[in-house]
Simulated assay, not measured.
Amino acid sequence: MQILTISTIFAGNNLFRLLNGLVVTIEISLISIILGTILGVILGSLWSAAGTLIKPIFKAYLEIFRVVPTIPLLFLFYYIFPRNLNINLSAMQVSILVFSLWFAAELSDIVRGAIQSISKSQRENAYSIGLTTLQTYRYVLIPQSVPNILPAFINLSSRIIKTTSILLLISVTDVITVGQQIIEANAQDTAVPLLIYGFIALLYFLINYLLSHFSRRLERKYRKYE
């Protein structure tokens, strides 16, 4: 019985479907992280330099994505906004949009804090040698902030990858959705859910372990230059 249950993964094209679903998960996560990083760094830099009147706008954006759960946000962007705004977005596009905005919101606060923790003398020295504000952020403040940002950045990236498991709610064919389909097709075997979800958990573990290993290498690299 156990051998028959284990063979479910390799039956037909189940393994290929699971790996293809994993590719979808990685693709959504990777694109969201890249877009969220670009937007988060820009917003965090602007936030650190913003005046008193503009800061509440950044705080409002952060709090919306920090307080509101991801599932309602997905439903809003997938079901409500497209219907009211007459915009047609695929489930994958909505997923990337929501996760990118969420990632950017969280990262912007981290970037802001890291930049503001740098000594004011660094900024003054940059201005004294003729650097513009943009050059000061690009060549002085942001590079010095990276070691402080990196651990939180990896944690956020890991959260994005794990949170993709809820995308079955808007019919994204990710690894969780494929796993659920295989379980439903083998409903007569009560051991199949444990096998499939255990296999999926292993895939998530491997992805996040590699991400954690990569982050440790980056941290060691930056320590050499401190």
Rank of each mutant, 00 (worst) to 15 (best):
I110W: 08
Q181A: 14
E106W: 05
L206D: 02
R220E: 09
I170Y: 02
S128H: 09
Q180Y: 10
S32T: 02
V94K: 01
L85H: 04
N208F: 01
N155S: 14
A104W: 00
N208W: 02
D189M: 12
I196Q: 00
A50N: 13
I80C: 13
F205L: 09
S48T: 09
S90W: 08
Y79M: 08
Q181C: 05
D189V: 07
S157N: 01
R138M: 07
I54M: 14
P147C: 12
L131G: 10
T190V: 10
L101C: 11
L203S: 07
A11G: 05
I96A: 02
L134S: 15
I54N: 09
M92D: 03
D189R: 11
L211N: 05
V67P: 04
N20K: 12
L150I: 14
I57Q: 06
S128V: 12
L43D: 04
Q180E: 15
F103W: 07
I6F: 14
Y79F: 15
A191H: 08
W47D: 13
I207K: 04
Q93N: 13
T163P: 04
L97R: 08
S45W: 08
L167Y: 03
I87G: 07
S7W: 11
I64H: 00
L15C: 01
N125C: 13
I154E: 12
P147T: 12
L167W: 01
W102D: 04
M1V: 15
T8D: 00
T25K: 01
A11F: 06
P193H: 02
I154V: 15
S117W: 03
S90I: 08
S95E: 00
N86R: 07
L150G: 07
F199L: 06
P147F: 10
G51W: 11
N13L: 05
V41A: 09
L169S: 12
E219F: 08
L194I: 04
L46I: 12
V67T: 13
R112C: 10
T132R: 13
S157K: 03
R112V: 10
I110Q: 15
P143H: 06
L169I: 11
G51T: 11
Y137F: 10
V192R: 04
K55A: 12
P82D: 01
S119D: 15
K162D: 03
A105I: 03
T136P: 04
N84F: 08
V67G: 01
L62A: 11
